[in-house]
Design a protein around this nucleic acid. Structure first.
Length: 261
DNA sequence: ATGGTAGCCCTGCTA
């Protein structure tokens, strides 16, 4: 069984690439972020035609998360991680979509972008992660297989950015963000990809500007975090940086995990 | 503090 996560930066502009990638990558489960589509705009039919059940939640104009699960893995049962809303209630901005695929509790997350370390969005990001952690702890309880994967908008280690001096006092590397990420690990999860793709220089995202990809100036901000029961099934992992190449690429590369049986 | 590119809500905002 193979599972993957990919921030596609608009499912509608990327649909041809996503289809081609699914066909050559042979993944059973794909978590997608930044669909930039409402449910009405989401191309369910084209993905279902490839043999996937599809769940999508488009929660605002520029983001949205989805889960694709190969037909036969079991029912896709959408559920949302409760989390503080940006703005006043009753606005719900879930940014996380869960489904049960092949006996695994799968969650696709798009962690809020804090914009910069003194922006109100940073406070929101940290409180959102705290709420996610409480959910995550439940998903991993009683030895269950659980995986939370997506775009975390956090580089947990210095080696996860091309230059720490460049990111000094910027978002993604601040102590508060790194502590919040650690909070998810403390809820009973491990990064199942890093042991198979050690750094430095191993990134999942490269800015579109300033020839960042060509200059190898990236960040590792997309992670697959698994409960112990999930992690012990992992036999391999890879970051598909080939997919970042060429015209029409997302600014993020897919991250793929191989599971035993 | 800016600019670089991409995608949408499209001459502004978000990443």
């Amino acid at each position: 069984m193979r599972i993957a996560t990919w921030n596609v930066n608009s499912i509608r502009s990327r649909i041809d690439r996503v289809e081609a990638w699914l066909q050559r990558s042979d993944v059973d489960v794909l978590a997608i972020q930044e669909t930039k589509a409402t449910d009405a705009q989401f191309p369910f039919e084209r993905l279902q035609a490839l043999g996937y059940e599809v769940a999508h939640h488009g929660f605002n104009h520029w983001n949205g998360v989805a889960i694709l699960s190969r037909v036969g893995l079991g029912a896709v049962t959408p559920a949302f991680a409760g989390a503080p809303a940006w703005g006043e209630p009753p606005v719900v901005e879930a940014r996380a979509l869960s489904a049960t695929c092949g006996g695994i509790h799968v969650t696709s997350v798009y962690v809020p972008n804090g914009r910069n370390i003194r922006d109100p969005h940073m406070e929101y990001k940290l409180s959102w992660l705290e709420a996610l952690g409480a959910q995550a702890r439940r998903w991993a309880a009683d030895g269950q297989q659980a995986v939370i994967m997506g775009d975390w908008n956090i580089a947990p280690q210095d080696d996860d950015v091309w230059s720490m001096s460049y990111y000094l006092d910027k978002s993604h590397v601040s102590p508060g963000e790194r502590a919040a990420f650690q909070g998810i690990l403390d809820a009973g999860y491990v990064d199942v990809v890093r042991p198979h793709t050690p750094g430095p220089g191993t990134y999942t995202y490269w800015d579109y500007t300033m020839l960042a990809f060509q200059k190898r100036r990236g960040m590792r901000i997309d992670f697959v975090l698994g409960s112990p029961a999930f992690a012990e099934r992992v036999s391999g992992a890879a970051i598909d940086r080939e997919e970042r190449k060429g015209k029409g690429a997302s600014d993020h590369a897919p991250v793929v995990v191989q599971l035993e049986a």
